[in-house]
Amino acid sequence: MRIVIIDDSGLRASVLEEGLHEAGYDDIHIVPPRGGFVARLERMAPDVVLMDLGSPSRDTLEEMLTVSRALARPIAMFVDQSDEAMIGAAIDAGVSAYVVDGLRKERVKPVLELAVRRFNAFAKIQSELEEARSALSDRKIIDRAKSILMNQRSLSEQDAYALLRTAAMNQGKKIVEVAQALITASDLLGGGL
């Protein structure tokens, strides 16, 4: 079974490809949706095409599926429209798939399930990375606010942090919000560092 993954994000495509390899599929190709990607795809004659539901290029792909004479006409993803749980899971995970007409449902279903799991795993990694990134920038902001307090009020680092924390608690805000406000105010007053 030849599986083509159309994806902008190299990382997500690799995560999916790896999963498919582990499950014993070995005819897998990754095509980024740029330029003449539909012509490339047509030449590959895939059995299954997996694509990010959020990709703006889905309309381009579907147009090719409609007009292509080179391709044994693929049909849309949801091979069995009665399988609503599967469809729901796929849409939630952001997976769309096109499957060549005539391919048995039992053969396709494990591929779709795997794609759903891998897409979900990828989304989780991404949100963790996002959190880590924002934690890092939060710490920078707090550090800068601390040094403003240390300089202007001659506080120790510990006291500066305690002051920020108390202010945040009193105002019902996050420390980083108070720190940001302090930096902004300090910049406006020309006393920034």
């Binding site: 990709s55 309309d59 949801f78 609503e84």
Partner: peptide, 15 residues
Amino acid sequence: TTSWATLRDRLVFGQ
């Protein structure tokens, strides 16, 4: 939503 295909799928499948 960034494609008409996905807009259609979201509607047809009740998202």
